[in-house]
Simulated assay, not measured.
Amino acid sequence: MADPKLLITGHGGLIGQILWRGLADLFELYGVDICLKEKNGNAFRADISNAEQVTAVFKKIPDLAYVVHLAGDPRADADWQSVLMNNIAGTKNVYEAARAHGVKRVVFASSNHVTGAYEGFPPSLHTRQSPVLITTRHPIRPDGYYGIGKAAGEAIARLYYDLHGLESVCLRIGSVLRDDDPAGDARTQSLWLSHRDLLQLVRKSLLTEVRFAIYYGVSNNRNRFLDIADAMAKIGYQPEDDASTH
């Protein structure tokens, strides 16, 4: 039996490359990224803010079963216009194309910035840890336009599940580092998501029978302030790393 087909949007970025290497044993991989100069094997160039370009990519991948949606402006301080076009409209375009082409499930890369303001407000934003363990049941408290864009993406995912049955797991990802070394400031050590824990979390989000969920994505860091109990209980996430003992 052929491996199911998986499209990774933004596959050329840091997280995209980790997943591209780590999921090849389970899926027939396809990628889309605005930074590509031209089509390269199973990878396509497209601007996700352009619905026609997104649709054209999906048409080239018959029987596509899964999408990991990473693409968008990754800057935590992105301006509103960029968030509106690349992160909100772009996510809607991906979900609409997924719906129209019979995709079973999307794993959406949300962000800890959806609740970043629990760490304080300017001028003390992100200068202290949250005084409480933040769960997905806490109200959203975005710390900027980027966080608003990711919260909107979660809302789009919920709408497409309720209206169309398009399954989604939204992952509020912490800090994924290029060198995978969390020996930085205290906030990074709290929010670190190691490469192997990232890969495990995405694998289990793709293969779970849970049809819609939102989970935080961090390693089992001693000083973490984001709750991962739901992901551990519902999809069997068992993080192997802790920034304090790395």
Rank of each mutant, 00 (worst) to 15 (best):
L193Q: 04
F108Q: 04
Q17K: 14
H164S: 15
G31W: 00
S124Q: 11
G174T: 08
L159W: 02
R187N: 09
I134E: 01
A183F: 15
D77L: 11
Q238I: 12
K5W: 06
D47G: 06
D227R: 10
G217R: 02
S130Q: 04
A233K: 14
Y161P: 06
L201M: 14
N220F: 09
K92I: 08
V132M: 07
G116Y: 01
A157W: 00
K39Q: 08
W80R: 13
Y66K: 03
G102H: 07
A229Y: 10
N42V: 12
L64W: 04
P239M: 09
S49H: 04
T9N: 05
D241S: 08
D162T: 13
H138P: 04
R158N: 13
A78D: 10
V32Q: 02
R172P: 06
G72P: 00
D77H: 10
I228E: 00
V94Y: 01
F108L: 09
D63M: 08
D47S: 12
L198K: 02
L177M: 14
N50Q: 14
G120T: 04
A100W: 09
N112Y: 13
E119Y: 04
D63Q: 15
R222C: 14
G72L: 06
N87C: 13
T188C: 10
Q238L: 14
G149W: 00
V114R: 00
V83E: 01
S82I: 12
V57S: 03
H11V: 03
M232C: 11
G10R: 01
H195A: 06
L191P: 00
D73N: 12
R178C: 15
M232E: 07
L84K: 07
I228K: 00
A89Q: 09
R137Q: 08
F108K: 02
G120L: 05
C35D: 15
V68W: 00
L64V: 06
T127S: 11
L207Q: 11
L206G: 01
A78Q: 14
I34Y: 05
W20E: 04
I228S: 00
H195I: 07
L207N: 12
D181Q: 12
D143Q: 12
S219C: 11
I156Y: 01
N86W: 03
Y161H: 10
L201P: 02
H113K: 08
D73S: 15
L198G: 00
S111T: 08
L29G: 01
G12K: 11
W192I: 12
R178H: 14
P182R: 04
V106D: 03
G72A: 07
T55W: 04
T136I: 11
C35M: 08
S244D: 11
A56Y: 06
V202A: 08
G10D: 02
V32E: 00
E167V: 02
